[in-house]
């Protein structure tokens, strides 16, 4: 996976491999912290300050229990991505408009970016990483592949989590209903026809 792991030059072979994400995180964090008092530095600063602030958070994510010390500023999105390394939940707009960060929180679809993790002690969370059963895709995941429900893939995790919510809520009965009840998930590639078809197919599969 060349995009996930950096090439290790021979001289550095003694060091453990560094993922692209770790490099980006370290670089962005350093730059942002140097340049800004808040804003972009928030999540990094909050992650650093976590232990000091001392809010204790117990959450179950995809069936695994975690206990973490967090800063009250941290969103569930930041905790998932930066503390638990579950990066399938994407940070798109970080203001509740795009839906790329959609997760199931105690069974309901929500925008993880607009939740303060410290307000959800004891929560049960399902992320896109927890949808497949081992190597077996969930029918909705398989339907997204079958119907080309994505192009770049950035919104896809959020689309699938929101689609699961849409089906569970009983609002996937027609293409028009799916469109209205999936309106919180934006796809800038414009894969909407495939997304709607995938949810319609999975809805039938789940209900039959």
């Amino acid at each position: 996976m060349p995009e996930e792991t950096s090439h290790i030059p021979p001289a550095a072979a003694a060091f453990p491999p560094v993922s692209r994400r770790e490099v980006l995180q370290a670089t962005a964090g350093a730059v942002a912290l140097a340049a800004l008092p808040g804003g972009a530095a928030d999540s990094a600063a909050a992650a650093e300050a976590g232990a000091a602030a001392g809010h204790s958070l117990r959450i179950t994510v995809n069936g695994h229990a975690h206990e973490l010390a967090i800063d009250p500023r941290q969103s569930i999105l930041d905790v998932l991505r930066e503390r638990l390394n579950l990066t399938g939940t994407k940070k798109g707009c970080n203001q509740g408009a795009c839906g790329a960060c959609t997760i199931l929180l105690n069974g309901q679809r929500v925008n993880a970016c607009l939740t303060l993790a410290a307000m959800h002690d004891g929560a049960e969370i399902t992320t896109i990483e927890g949808v497949a059963q081992g190597e077996a895709l969930h029918p909705l995941q398989a339907a997204f592949i079958e119907h080309d429900g994505f192009q770049c893939g950035y919104c896809t995790g959020g689309q699938i989590m929101s689609g699961l919510g849409c089906i569970a809520e009983g609002h996937a009965g027609s293409p028009a209903e799916i469109k209205a009840w999936m309106s919180g998930n934006i796809c800038r590639c414009g894969a909407y026809p495939g997304i709607v078809a995938a949810i319609a197919q999975a809805n039938k599969a789940v209900r039959s």
């Binding site: 509740g96 925008n111 607009l114 809520e169 919180g184």
Partner: peptide, 9 residues
């Protein structure tokens, strides 16, 4: 009034 995700919260 809002997206389904927001309405749940």
């Amino acid at each position: 009034g809002a997206s389904p995700q927001l309405r749940n919260v």
